[in-house]
Amino acid sequence: MENLKINQQVITDEDIKKVSWRWIMASQITWNYEKMMAPGYFYAMLPVLRKLYTKEDELKDMMHNHLQFFNTTPHMGGFILGIDMATEESEGIKGKEAVNGIKTGLMGPFAGVGDTIVGVLIGTIFGSIAAYMGVNGNPTGVVLWMVVQALLMVGRYFTVGMSYKQGMKMVTSTRDRLNAITQAATLLGITVVGALIASVIRVNVAASFVSGEVTVAGQDVLDQIMPKLLPVLLVAGVYTLLGKKNMTSTKAILIVMVVSIILYAIGFLA
């Protein structure tokens, strides 16, 4: 892969910009159940394809080739596009098999790492901060999250060019580094979620214990055992519930709503 660019370089920085921008804007807009991101990938590659394949039958062949099933994390697809461009530039139509191998070989692993980092972890960490501040009426967390998302988009813009210029080696090392980052970010995310349990779940016990002359508020008794005891039990309960067969998150939401109404009606919670 090192001496890929024996052929004359025809892809310019302008083309890379075009591909990057098209991938950001169109990668998911034609997402469909049949071929998922295929039309988006194809549309992003189109300027390069038109430049590389001057014969009509070759162009059509490669256009159809890029309309085959493709799906990955949108933030990671740029890496694959860059490698693909470099390969097609040097190999031409002969590189068709190699290109398909690269696309199908990379999209799964990149989706695994990308969904975890961009979706689960950034969503957990900054979503927690935004929601925690938000329930108290403070919009700072919302702005912070939007800034982070904007930075991600800017970074994403440069992935196509980076992987086009540095090739497969960079993609492999990036993926290794991303695995280490995933681990570290998971740890951070789970720490934040631990704090979230203690801060955003509102449970007020209205019931009180009466023994003889003395009335003790139920909430005080619970607080003496452990602060935020009920939120912990609630999360643990729903966590266990979700592990049951045939349990969906929608069912869990409905169960919690019904239980809330019952506990309010009998005067246990307020």
Partner: peptide
């Protein structure tokens, strides 16, 4: 008030 617990448990 309780529903956030469901979201946290799903996560």
């Amino acid at each position: 008030g309780l529903l956030p617990a469901v979201g946290i448990a799903i996560l």
